[in-house]
Amino acid sequence: MALIETNSIYAGYGGMNILNGVNMSIEQDEIGVIVGPNGAGKSTTLKAIFGLLNVNEGNITLRGEDITNLSPDKLVHKGMGFVPQEYNVFTSLSVEENLEMGAFIRKDDFGYMLERVYSFFPDLKDKRKQPAGELSGGQRQMVAMGRALMVEPSLLLLDEPTAGLSPLYMNEIFDRIVAVNESGVGVLMVEQNAKQALRIAHKGFVLAAGQNRYTDTGENLLNDPEVAKSFLGG
């Protein structure tokens, strides 16, 4: 059974649809990458999945369970983590407090999870008492991902995790995402840096005008001359 599946969803702000029938599905051990031109509805897809805007038609299932239009906090309880593109850390809270806030819904002792996050992102361990607002862009991204991992989600949604980062950090973030995925977390992410992202993707979805244009494995998409010409800059 697919981990997450969207069946031709139509969604948008108010009554206007930005998504006009998006279909995608990924399995538990996969990384799915959504690419496409600006305004294609990439981030909108993630927001629709995470209940941040209204799905007007179609449905979304998590392991077969219908989760269409559930509110974000319910989805966190169902094992979904979401990392927004911007403003994704609590700047005035320390790194460790940020992680604790990610675990807000947990009533058990989550100390081991803190350690696991620090093992994914060793940089953070030294800075755990520092306010997250003082960190560099890449480190903030790590804090944001760590925060979302604290509930041990089965699915992690990442909205442009490498936006605005230097190439060096970009590669490091991609490495971390692979590591997180290999620990058993499904990942669905939106990326502007399409080529690099598709390299680590099991599945790629090319969106244009709110619809799937191409859906295939990451590798096939990278090698498809049509896709390369229209969407990957040659």
Binding site: F50, L52, P72, D73, V76, H77, F82, P84, Y87, N88, V89, F90, T91, S92, L93, E97, E100, M101, G102, F104, I105, R147, A148, V151
Partner: peptide, 20 residues
């Protein structure tokens, strides 16, 4: 208390994090 500081810092992120 920390959740209060978090929400005052960034209410959208607080909601996304599952803070009640």
């Amino acid at each position: 208390g920390k959740a209060m500081r978090a929400m005052s810092d960034n209410p959208d992120l607080a909601r996304v994090s599952g803070i009640n």
